[in-house]
Amino acid sequence: MEKISRFCINPVFLKELRTVVRNRKLSVTLMVYNTILGLVGTVALYVIFYLSGSSNMSEDVVMILYLMLTLIEFFLICFAIPAYTAGSISGEREKQTLDILLTTPLKPASIALGKLMSGIGSIVLLVISSLPILALVFTIGGISIVDIALYMLFIVITAFYVGSFGVLFSAKFKKTALSTVFTYATLIFMGIGTCVIILVAKLVGQMWLENMHALGKYTQVYDADLGYGVLLLMINPGVTWASLVMNALGSKSMFSEIIGEFGTIPTWIINWWFYLSSGVQIIISFFVIKLAGRRLNPLLAKNRKSKALKKKEKVVRTEE
């Protein structure tokens, strides 16, 4: 246990946290962000009270507000995290501090994790700082504190998940620009690509079934069902968001219907989608961090290269 906590709350993270907190940029960002959010919240509250008369507010308006605010914050995280993490290791490389860290007993994966935590730290701080405002707005309507807490958890996990790829690419590529591009590409694949794959698979399956019917092989047109194939969506944080929000809004059945449209899976998976997909994403993140650590280990990385060289030499020799 102590080993794990030392791995997670490691010196790199603590050091970075200190420097991040000192940065004046952060306090300005925090202020601006919360001012805007506060204004939006106040206006929204006013509108809600004004529209519905103080006694009986429309829960629908709160729902829409909740949907919008969480979506905005979700997008903010998705777009900001690559920018915050994709330069984390390359920056350390440029400053020549990476070499120093690598001569210490610090595990390369620990360095990668520290970098990730500090990369997402300021963003998560931003979101958490907005918690009181969100709570104020939502507790009036049908949203419970638990929902908001889960939402915060979701934001942290998403930041961790997306950020881990940023750190991996930052360890892999020397140029920050390149790693940023790759991180966004990964994000787009996770967010949109997985949906496209599911859609295309469904369409192709449907076409095939209709074809079979036309050929007289099947007596009726069956609905294409991807079955457990829809579990691919577990890696999509957007779907995680949807499962969370629909749950909070009391429209669980809608989420289950949409998923069911593409593939039939046991209901308990649907019911626990938020937790399961979060778990999957956390596991993937740790795996990605391990990979980033491998990339950072100078001896391992070069070993691989020299093996490739040896292979090349062998080819040359056999050609002779």
């Binding site: 010196p11 050091k15 420097t19 400053k95 020549q96 501090t97 120093i100 007993p105």
Partner: peptide, 20 residues
């Protein structure tokens, strides 16, 4: 020599001490 911004000399030392 790599420098970390926003870190005091003593903190720089303590950071590496904590690694050990």
């Amino acid at each position: 020599f790599g420098v970390y911004d926003n870190l005091k000399a003593i903190e720089y030392m303590e950071f590496f001490a904590s690694i050990y």
